[in-house]
Amino acid sequence: MDREDIYIISRNSNWSAKNVDAALKQHVYKDANAWKKMLHLFFLVLAIGFTTAGIIFFFTYNWNGLNKFVKIGLIELILLTTVFIALFSKMRLLIKHILLTAASILVAALFAVYGQIYQSGATLYDFFLGWTLFVTIWVIVTNFAFLWVLFLYLVNATFTFYVQLETSRLSEKQAYLAVLIMNGLWLLLFLLLSKKYAYFKLVNWLKNLVFIFIVSVATLAVWEGLVEKYETLLIVLIACTLVIYLLGLKYAFTHKNLIFLGIIPFSFIIILSAVFIKVLPNEWVFLINGVFITVSVGYLIKYLLIIQKSEKWQS
């Protein structure tokens, strides 16, 4: 019996307050064991948190006075210890993966300190490029979902900084297109090969996250392209988006993935509202858009709910 059950029953019967209270205390409220565990965890977290914070504050206080070799050496020492424990200890695989994730972030700290000490004049692009390259091997070897998220973020960030800082030859639309193609190919590669090789099998949330990201970028790019002045590249962008969406729908139907199925029509609705704005640049377009979006999203949800209930799709 959980809380929802108790609420539903009490709303529709003459269950007395005293007995509802007893039922809640027995089935819903936390018992003494849960309290003991919680308080235990609470004090442990506080102890570790305060001690770590104290150590960090201590180093921050003395940071400027430290020798530059000590600074770099300290971070390298922590980095090496982390990787060493990850490689040679006998802990659970998950903990080793988490340790390597921490190590990947320490790599960034190392580069940052290096840049701060030697004032090498490196830009954000150089920083992210170095970080990405040095983390790639760990990402490929561990095949850990969180590391893949970090890696994809780093690749996209490096590319963005490249476009912003290093070259002015790529226009905004070309940059969007490149991002779509890069991430799309990565996802496609993994999804296609996952049937043959177990290595490429992705966790559900990672698949969904990457696809939602791709669709968001595509929607944003097409919306901007439609609302602004017309460029021929817009056709290429729209074609690319259509290809991605068709492949996504095919995947949704063959693998019963509700998120892939739902986000594509939603993106279409938003793009269509941009088309309306382009075609009818007067006052009435807002009214049309308002009604159109509300009604079509309403029908989309109805459709998604029916599909979800009928065939047990994953979400």
């Binding site: 509700l258 998120i259 739902g262 986000i263 939603f266 609705i269 938003i270 509202s273 006052e283 009435w284 807002f286 009214l287 858009n289 308002g290 009604v291 159109f292 979006i293 509300t294 999203v297 309403g298 989309l300 949800i301 998604l304 709910l305 979800q308 979400s315």
Partner: peptide
């Protein structure tokens, strides 16, 4: 309903009604 459908409902409702009020 699942979280995904809830989020789409919220976004759709927000967008639609904002357009209506603005119009």
């Amino acid at each position: 309903v699942s979280l995904f459908i809830k989020v789409i409902t919220i976004l759709g409702g927000l967008l639609g009604s904002t357009f209506l009020v603005a119009s």
